[in-house]
């Protein structure tokens, strides 16, 4: 992962079209976006503006209909499915709105999941998971199942899972969308800390202006195109 300049994400002339029956739905149109390494970017916009689609393209969960997606100098839109999965495992941490934890696994084992794809031993995996949970302030909840945790705690576990393999970039899709204000603030503070103290590049989709002010830059999307960029 090396680039000539400080940009980590480079999106060039990206179009994404979904087909529903005979109808073509243009979700993103000729979009260009650059995100610098270590940046905390908020993606805002109304429903259907293409925020989550853009996040999925950056995270390699989907492919553009046209254009290029380059992360850390690598064209991920040209990778095979298998290589893309391996790339995600190494470089991307996802944080979801509804936490998406495995209900049958404890907090520790949820966080351990991405490490199953590495060559780490069981004890090493457990140690890393413990450290990640400690970083999000949940070292006392290792053996708790998601159903016994509050929404805020579950999202912290989600963040711990996202950071446990030390990814290059954190992609957060409405991370505070399902939380009350207090818990949401705590999550945003945690993300800010990860950005500022550990230098994590974070791209966060949000509807909430209160959340977006925690970001170093805000990008507005409307009808699949960049609308405005807030001052940095």
């Amino acid at each position: 992962m090396s680039t000539a300049d400080s940009s980590l994400v480079r999106i060039r002339d990206v179009t994404k079209t979904f087909h529903r029956g005979s109808e073509d739905i243009h979700v993103l149109s000729s979009l260009d976006l650059t995100v610098a390494k270590g940046e905390f970017l908020a993606l805002m916009g109304p429903s259907g503006s293409g925020k989550s689609t853009l996040l999925n393209l950056i995270g390699g969960l989907d492919r553009p209909t046209h254009g290029s997606v380059e992360i850390g100098g690598q064209r991920i839109d040209q990778l095979t499915e298998r290589d893309l999965a391996a790339w995600r495992a190494e470089h991307v941490g996802f944080v979801f709105q509804f936490y998406n934890l495995m209900p049958v696994l404890t907090a520790e084992r949820n966080v351990e999941l991405p490490l199953l794809l590495t060559h780490l031993s069981k004890s090493q995996r457990r140690q890393h998971a413990g450290n990640a949970l400690k970083a999000v302030g949940l070292s006392h909840r290792l053996k708790h199942y998601p159903r016994t945790l509050s929404g805020g705690e579950q999202q912290r576990v989600g963040i711990a899972r996202a950071i446990v393999s030390d990814p290059t970039i954190l992609l957060c899709d409405e991370p505070t969308g399902d939380l009350d204000r207090k818990s949401g603030d705590e999550i945003l503070t945690l993300l800010q800390t990860l950005n500022q103290e550990q230098g994590k590049t974070i791209i966060m989709v949000t509807h909430d202006p209160h959340a977006s002010i925690r970001a170093s830059r805000t990008v507005h999307l409307d009808k699949g195109q960049l609308a405005t960029t807030a001052p940095e």
């Binding site: 995270g59 969960l61 499915e81 298998r82 999965a85 391996a86 995600r88 495992a89 190494e90 991307v92 996802f94 979801f96 998406n100 495995m102 999941l113 991405p114 794809l117 899972r161």
Partner: peptide, 15 residues
């Protein structure tokens, strides 16, 4: 389905 989606998102290959 969602859990399988999460597994794939975090890097589990389809195979």
């Amino acid at each position: 389905t969602e859990e399988i989606g999460v597994l794939k998102a975090i890097g589990f290959s389809g195979t």
